[in-house]
Structures are given as structure tokens and as C-alpha cells.
């Protein structure tokens, strides 16, 4: 994947003016970086294949704990939705809904507690950022 990223960088850089080393164009530096990345990722790939060929144990991944990928996906999804509706719904509503969703994903199953905690957080952050620090956060259709 990193090799592909390097290759795409090289291709896109070639569409820019390259110039000479004396008078470099916009594309020269990224072109050099793209080539360097392709070389490095090739070395990495070769080493990986060589290790596999030698039956050396694969490099240990730091996360050995069995985890819940679904939980991460839901968490990420909730954040993306909040970003998409950030301007439309406005900060107070988005912060409330985001908190409800994230707490729920993390196993906060009692709705009254979840909703009240989210409401308190949304109100507190609204007063902190909008009222006290005067940060112009999106008002959305609720107009707050």
C-alpha cells in the first residue's frame, strides 16, 4: 500500500513542472520523495518475503489483546456522522447526539443515565466554548 502511495506521488509529480536541480520546479521534491518511498517500501517488502521464506516468526503486533473491531467501526461511524451534520444540526445538538451514541457504543445501556449525562455534557460544553470562550461554533437549525 505504501508502495502504491509512492507510485501515485511519482505519477502526480510528473504532471507538475520538474525543472532542473539548479532551478527546481514544483514537482521535483515530491518526485524524489515518491521514488524514495517506493525504494524503501520495496526493501521492506523484500525483507518481509525473505523472513517469510526463512520461516521466521512474523513481527509481533503491539495489540495482542482480542479486540472489538465492530466497536471501533461504530465509534468511527458516529464521529463521521457528527462531522457531516456539524454545520447543519449545530454544535449543541451534535455534541448531545454524539455523546449519546458514543456512550451507547461503549456499553452505557441505561438510557436515562446515558441521556442525562450527554445532556449535561452538551450544555456544559456549550457554555464553556460558546458562552464563555466566545468561540463561533455552528448554530445549525436550532439557532443556539
Amino acid at each position: 500500500m505504501i508502495f502504491i502511495f509512492g507510485a501515485i506521488t511519482v505519477l502526480l509529480s510528473l504532471r507538475m513542472p520538474i525543472g532542473t536541480f539548479r532551478m527546481a520546479g514544483a514537482g521535483l521534491f515530491p518526485l524524489c520523495l515518491g521514488i524514495l518511498l517506493m525504494v524503501l517500501s520495496s526493501i521492506f517488502l523484500l525483507r518481509f518475503l525473505f523472513k517469510k521464506w526463512q520461516n521466521v516468526k512474523k513481527e509481533e503486533s503491539p495489540s495482542e489483546i482480542p479486540g472489538s473491531a465492530m466497536q471501533v467501526l461504530f465509534f468511527m461511524g458516529a464521529m463521521i456522522l457528527a462531522t457531516l451534520f456539524f454545520k447543519i444540526l449545530g454544535y449543541p445538538l451534535v455534541s448531545f447526539l454524539l455523546m449519546v451514541a458514543l456512550l451507547r457504543i461503549l456499553g452505557m445501556k441505561q438510557w436515562p443515565f446515558n441521556i442525562s449525562l450527554s445532556l449535561i455534557t452538551a450544555i456544559a460544553s456549550y457554555f464553556l466554548f460558546v458562552q464563555w470562550l466566545k468561540i463561533p461554533l455552528p448554530k445549525g437549525w436550532i439557532g443556539l
Binding site: 465509534f75 464521529m79 462531522t83 456539524f86 454545520k87 455523546m99 461503549l106 449525562l117 463561533p136
Partner: peptide, 30 residues
């Protein structure tokens, strides 16, 4: 932590937006 982590996320999103008032930057952050 199940309360702390959503709070950190909310703070990250709000904090990121305040840098340039840009939703695009929140997308980059995510």
C-alpha cells in the same frame, strides 16, 4: 473510561474546529 473517552472525542472535535472554523479539518483529523 467509557465516560472519559467520549468526552475526549468531543473535546478533540470541538478543539479542531476552533483552529480554522473548518469542518474539513475535522475530516482530516478523523
Amino acid at each position: 473510561k467509557k465516560i472519559l473517552l467520549p468526552l475526549i472525542i468531543l473535546f478533540c472535535i470541538t478543539g479542531q474546529y476552533t483552529v480554522n472554523n473548518s469542518v474539513f479539518d475535522i475530516g482530516i483529523m478523523l
